[in-house]
Design a protein around this nucleic acid. Structure first.
Length: 265
DNA sequence: CTATTTGTTTATCC
DNA sequence: AGGATAAACAAATA
């Protein structure tokens, strides 16, 4: 579920514990979300450390503890960040629980376990955090960067390309559909067949959808207005907010995709 | 029982 | 070499 704005929303769920110390750690090292992580080191290093900050970038989050701890969280398809009171016990899919002070617990849960935890103890940023691509709302995400990337993917449907995190960090299935609908471009259109004018529109809509999503969903998980595709895309017999005509659904680039045949071309 | 899922990684083919 | 595509991962839900 979580894309750019949902990830930012979940990051903020842990903020009430900002400045507090880790007084206990519960985790089950055999869970798939810890694949590749030295959980012994994580448990040893994290004990007693202060929660000093956090940041989200695309679908990746990084939580800082003390001066040297980098705790990465990716939510996969079904991950969530929540807070439990100190009296509550971890539930079935709560894979990492940090007891903070004596009043609350920070919880990472993920039933499907497509998400993952990353961990590093280091003065400097670990590679997985240092190497993140320019965020879409930053000045470094230029039209030229997107243009060049599309030129290297001429045979791919644009829908599949928008989901590539190395260039479009944070874009997921619903955002890609929203962007293409606003740009009036068919999701199945090959990148090589998209002209300069359409690419400029695509670039502007990509940034606009990110900005809108952060404002509407990233702050308090508000409901998007009905003039977005968002509220119509999963309903059978849904109608295009622009034309009022039927929406269509099919697999494009391996993902369920919704578009408005009368509006996009 | 079957089909579906808002994500990423890996394998395989081209 | 690098792009394109499909399968695998796991569990809930309809």
């Amino acid at each position: 579920m979580p894309e750019l704005a949902e990830v930012e929303y979940y990051r903020k769920q842990w903020l009430p514990a900002y400045g507090q110390a880790v007084t206990g750690i519960y985790l089950n090292a055999s869970k798939r979300v810890f694949r590749g992580v030295d959980t012994n080191a994580l448990q040893r290093d994290l004990a007693g450390q202060l929660f000093t900050g956090s940041e989200a970038h695309g679908k990746q989050m990084c939580f800082r503890f003390g001066p040297n701890i980098w705790l990465g969280v990716h939510l996969g398809m079904t991950g969530k960040m929540t807070i439990l009171s100190s009296l509550e016990s971890p539930r079935k899919h709560d894979h990492l629980v940090l007891r903070m002070g004596d009043e609350r617990q920070l919880v990472f849960s993920d039933p499907r376990m497509f998400g993952r935890i990353l961990y590093a103890y280091s003065k400097r940023e670990p590679a997985w955090w240092a190497l993140r691509p320019p965020s879409i709302l930053s000045a470094e995400f230029t039209f030229e960067r997107m243009h060049h990337f599309l030129d290297r993917r001429t045979k791919s449907p644009i829908k599949a390309v928008l989901l590539m995190q190395e260039t479009f960090p944070g874009i997921g299935n619903w955002m890609a559909d929203e962007i293409l609908w606003r740009s009036r471009i068919l999701p199945s259109k090959r990148c090589g067949a998209i002209g300069l004018r359409a690419r400029r529109e695509l670039y502007a809509c990509t940034r606009q959808v990110c900005e809108d999503a952060m404002r509407v969903i990233g702050t308090d998980w508000g409901t998007p207005p009905n003039d977005w595709l968002f509220n119509h895309r999963w309903k059978d017999g849904g109608h295009c907010p622009q034309t009022g005509k039927s929406l269509k659904r099919a697999q494009v680039g391996g993902r369920t995709t919704c578009w408005s045949p009368a509006w996009q071309r």
